[in-house]
């Protein structure tokens, strides 16, 4: 009988890029478990189920907690260690049995990047039509938008003001990586944010 072997799972790209500009660092985060939950976000039982599997409260509109991202009016993206997505989706399914919802393991559908450093805002501002001034986009804020040509989302989950986590669909990971590296070049920042 075949056993599931998690060590076979590989991200589409791996690496850290120290671009040198303003101490910028760009990481591809290794695999991360993710579950899409679509449901009535105002329902107390949905909030309770989310709290139960993530330990996190329901985020406000366009906000991110440490492991729950607000994606749409009826959609969350939950984050967990890789390999646990299936179990989390199943647990949500049980908790919300009888309530209309969709919980699906999407741990492999997206690539997750981390960009940190004083110039991180300016890097993103080169391709995302979003006001990234410190008082307009702060810790806990999340934005789904486009970066250059592709759909992406980014948020600030940690306490640091200049650490951004960025996701895009996995097949575009190489494109976004190269775009972020190019856009992080030393001396290329407009110096406005």
């Amino acid at each position: 009988m075949s056993e599931l072997d998690l060590s076979l799972a590989r991200p589409i790209l791996e690496g850290v890029s120290d671009t040198g500009a303003n101490g910028l660092k760009l990481f591809v985060q290794l695999l991360r478990g993710m579950v899409t939950l679509r449901a009535d976000l105002s329902s107390p039982s949905v909030a309770a189920a989310v709290k139960d599997v993530t330990g996190s409260d329901m985020p406000d509109v366009r906000k991110a907690t440490e492991n729950v991202l607000w994606m749409s009016t009826d959609e969350l993206l939950l984050l967990m260690p890789y390999g646990e997505g299936g179990a989390v989706a199943a647990k949500l399914g049980e908790a919300l049995a009888g309530e209309h919802h969709l919980a699906v393991d999407v741990s492999d559908a997206r690539s997750l990047f981390k960009l940190e450093g004083g110039a991180a805002r300016e890097v993103l501002a080169k391709g995302a039509p979003v006001d990234l001034a410190r008082d307009k986009f702060a810790v806990g804020d999340l934005r789904r938008t486009r970066i250059s040509h592709i759909a992406a989302a980014f948020w600030q989950s940690g306490a640091e003001p200049d650490v951004f986590e960025i996701i895009c669909f996995r097949s575009y990971a190489n494109y976004l990586w190269e775009w972020l590296e190019e856009s992080s070049r030393e001396g290329s920042m407009p110096g406005i944010l």
Binding site: V61, R62, S72, T73, P129, V130, R143, R144, T145, R146
Partner: peptide, 12 residues
């Protein structure tokens, strides 16, 4: 009107 973003046309 759904997520409250005031965004440029290219997002829509």
């Amino acid at each position: 009107p759904c997520c409250g973003v005031s965004g440029e046309e290219t997002e829509f």
